[in-house]
Amino acid sequence: MEQSIEKIGPTIGQSLLENPKMSMRNVDVFYGDKQAIYDVNLDIGKNEVLSMIGPSGCGKSTFLRCLNRMNDTIEGCKVTGSFDLEGKNIYHPKMDVVPLRARVGMVFQKPNPFPKTIYDNVAYGPKIHGLVESKTDLDEIVESSLQKAGLWDEVKDRLDQQGTGLSGGQQQRLCIARTIAISPEVILMDEPCSALDPIATSKIENLITELSENYTIAIVTHSMQQAARVSDRTAYFHLGKLVEVNDTQHLFTNPDHELTEAYITGRFG
């Protein structure tokens, strides 16, 4: 089922919301001369879990990285369009990237704890942003972050051990604890479970559900079952265009766009 980009048409479903947490309009992303994202309009609601699915190379990771301006670090990457975080444009020339990334945190595909102790890993964010004044406050933040990430019981006796000595699933939870230690408003997750075994994956998925009560979460995933289990709304990207955004239940039982159906039933790619 070959589909060129021109034939895809406008986004179907409910891509726009009232009072969104983040609002993206007319987003185009270029790597040099090659265009990776075409005219995407999408809202992310408060405290919702939005998952982004699509075949390899469809631009979902690129789009995710635009949300906290991580694409700034890539040479030759040009981003146009508007990105609003609660009404404020995050690509404004006067907008400082550093506090932005404190409000919009990111968890990466391969767990990447710092080569420091577990304590220092979680404490790093609060320290550099000056969120704490005393050691006791810092201890509290470390403990509560590790608890929220579901890691406290496993590591409370070895906070001074290297973070890199944990198992893959624990490392990823450590990265999540590190991210929530600075109390971001939005958490971006780029295929957080792709390097983990099923048990670790299920723990992280439960964690996502718990976290969504207090944080807005956008997650890119290759696994449709994961998107189905975890998210409230699902967005389907294809060749850089946003094809459909809908309630997860609706999208997986009766998708509106034929491309979506073709992808999720595995009839192409």
């Binding site: 990447n112 550099i128 991210t179 600075i182």
Partner: peptide
């Protein structure tokens, strides 16, 4: 990946280098 992690946490360029 370490740089990305640090940048993602909101560390400035100099902090990434020094820390």
């Amino acid at each position: 990946s370490i740089r990305q992690a640090a940048l993602g946490m909101g560390a400035s360029k100099m902090q990434v280098i020094l820390h």
